[in-house]
Design a protein around this nucleic acid. Structure first.
Length: 274
DNA sequence: CGGTGGACCTGCTGGC
DNA sequence: TGCCAGCAGGTCCACC
């Protein structure tokens, strides 16, 4: 479901709703997510702790608990974190329920169970196996055309797969990879080792532009994405190629094509993208 | 080492 | 109506 703009939108909502709140109970209905959730750790180590910050790294949400714990979430394809007043009813696929006093709770809901939840400490977080190989944040100053040129040197993989490689750059998934490549005028199949500095300049700018625009529109809701308050995104109304196979390109009127790369659909305009 | 294909899950849609 | 194939916003690991 969620790429950087969606996860960041969720983070912003969670920060407002959760900072200053204390965890009073954790209920686990289904521990088998992407990895088995450590139920004992959750139930013995976080109860009584106060949430001091909600951060994001890549597509991970980091809830900092005073004094030194970090509760980490990943939403996979269909994960949702919903915060609101407590309800009696456990919906199907509500796997983890975090109680935050008598008047508030957070529910992790994930039909496909590709999401994750694990507990670590502030000191161990940077060395966690899921964190330590992550590339730069695309909206940071570390993400530049020179960096991309350097990372791509000698590689033969298609630029679409390169963009979705989290060791290269984080946060870009299937939607924003296609959209960025359209904006940059590059075919998703181009081999990265053969691209020149000018291509990387265009692509770097395009990625930042697309992600910022999606963030300004609170993400993309294709079917079920909502933020922590239940609000849908709006960026689906601005997608130029993703999910538009057979439709006419808004720029040059050619038919948008779909192809499969590494098992995922890519969308591009054969006229605008070379 | 780099790159691909399949695995992990459930749910929805469209064709027959 | 039922059944089945194909598809879906992510990540990881075995295998060439």
């Amino acid at each position: 479901m969620p790429e950087l703009p969606e996860v960041e939108t969720i983070r912003r909502g969670l920060a407002v709703q959760l900072i200053g709140r204390s965890i009073t109970e954790v209920r686990v209905r289904q521990a088998q997510l992407r990895h088995l959730v450590d139920v004992t750790a959750l139930q013995t180590q976080v109860v009584g702790l106060t949430i001091t910050a909600v951060e994001r790294r890549a597509k991970y949400l980091l809830m900092h608990l005073r004094p030194d714990r970090v509760l980490v979430w990943h939403l996979g394809m269909t994960g949702r974190l919903w915060v609101g007043p407590p309800t009696e009813h456990d919906a199907k696929h509500d796997h983890l329920i975090v109680h935050l006093g008598p008047d508030l709770e957070m529910r992790f809901h994930d039909p496909r169970r590709f999401g994750m939840c694990f507990l670590t400490t502030r000191a161990a977080l940077p060395h966690h196996p899921r964190m330590q190989h992550l590339g730069p944040e695309p909206l940071s100053s570390a993400f530049t055309s020179s960096y991309l040129l350097e990372r791509a040197r000698g590689l033969r993989k298609p630029v679409k797969n390169f963009l979705m490689d989290a060791t290269v750059v984080v946060g870009i998934g299937n939607i924003y990879a296609s959209e960025s490549l359209f904006l940059a005028g590059l075919r998703p199949t181009r081999e990265v080792g053969r691209l020149r500095y000018g291509h990387w300049e265009r692509l770097c700018t395009a990625v930042k532009q697309v992600l910022q625009a999606a963030l300004d529109n609170h993400g993309t809701t294709l079917s079920d994405y909502v933020d922590s308050t239940g609000r849908q995104g709006e960026f689906q109304n601005h997608l130029l190629v993703y999910g538009r196979e057979g439709e006419l390109c808004q720029r040059d009127g050619r038919r948008i094509k779909r192809l499969v790369q590494a098992g995922r659909s890519s969308f591009y305009c054969p006229g605008c993208q070379r």
